[in-house]
Design a protein around this nucleic acid. Structure first.
Lengths: 198, 198
DNA sequence: GCCACTTGCCTAAAGATGTTAGGCAAGTGC
DNA sequence: GCACTTGCCTAACATCTTTAGGCAAGTGGC
């Protein structure tokens, strides 16, 4: 009987494609076996179990995202870098919704620490070097950017913004403008300043 | 044989509790049947299927959230209202993580239109009456607020901010400050203004 | 080229969940 | 007290997950 040439890597890649086609939570060992025209049990020599498979897909997605982000940030700074990084997340989520969902999988702490997730945090910090933020504020800003990017992309992908008038591209551009303005005039703690012009 | 007194409502409530205990994606018809000490098939007289059960839990969560939001917004305006609404989402997610996850379930358009989801959008718009935004910008702002609230809460809940130094409560407060400042000085489209003081 | 050995995919089997069809008994209305 | 409805049941089947053990396709030594 001809061998199918299964490897953990091929299974992971095929699993990622499957996720983009049918949704990450529909990724199943059985479906993957069907895709390779192979019996289900055969996969268990290459991945530990279903959870292991999903974790591998998540790690793949995180790595792809981090690679794209690194490339997008190269040679850019300021608002240019901000928009580039933001668009990496948004475009990736639209091109690969299943992988993007996979990237949100909750990983156990050790796996998370060894994942490309830490590269994302580092890159966001690097991006903020173009703005004038000192340490505690920098972390706040990292969290804000992460929240906006993830929140927007996830709501847009989930259809939360559908059937409403202004195009989501316009909103996205305005939000990036707003974030840039905000980062350049980061308010001090406590009572935020009123408009200095008023 | 004694009757268990199953109803769609009781099943939905119990399903919501189960979601908070074990996670929304672990909510299963079987687990719910065990909780009522009843055979699995018995549930199928009250809910159509597993998807129906999950949809009902999602609608329950959306309603509870909207009720809390309405109460929190009553009598408040400006930053007070902003913080109150934001904290409704964050507190609800921390008290009821499974329900919060349920509220993110993708609903089909008709179900979504009939859900409490529309109340959320309306309340966010009402909140923005405390700021000076005209129509296209108001929608952009609604989307921004939704993104930040959902993104922050979901990252915090998923452990994305764990094991890092500044307390997440501090970040949250600073983000609310920043949003308030931003809404009061909403930048015009195109090139955002530089700091007017510089 | 043959032998022993490893490795890859297989069959078999058992457990969990989802779902449907049909039955019997506990409640309800006259 | 009787017919009727309703609620939970048993039975059965499909799908998915996972483990144990088997056979044959490749691999290395001679």
């Amino acid at each position: 009987m001809a061998r199918a040439g299964l490897t953990p890597e091929r299974l992971t890649r095929a699993g990622a494609e499957l996720a983009d086609e049918v949704g990450f939570d529909q990724v199943t060992v059985s479906a993957l076996a069907r895709r390779f025209d192979v019996k289900v049990a055969s996969l268990y020599s290459h991945v530990k179990n279903s959870q292991d498979l999903k974790t591998r897909i998540a790690l793949l997605a995180l790595t792809e995202l981090a690679d794209r982000a690194a490339e997008a940030l190269a040679g850019r700074s300021g608002k240019d870098a901000l928009a580039a990084l933001a668009n990496v997340y948004r475009d990736y989520a639209r091109e690969h919704p299943g992988r993007y969902a996979a990237a949100q999988l909750r990983l156990d702490p050790e796996t998370a620490a060894a994942s490309a997730g830490v590269r994302h945090a580092r890159m966001t910090r690097a991006l903020l070097r173009g703005y004038d933020l000192t340490e505690p504020d920098q972390t706040h800003a990292v969290r804000l950017l992460g929240s906006v990017f993830h929140g927007y992309v996830s709501l847009e992908l989930g259809g939360g913004f559908s059937h409403s008038a202004p195009d989501t591209d316009v909103t996205w551009a305005r939000i990036l403008d707003a974030l840039d303005t905000l980062l350049r005039n980061w308010p001090a703690p406590g009572e935020p300043p009123t408009d200095p012009r008023g």
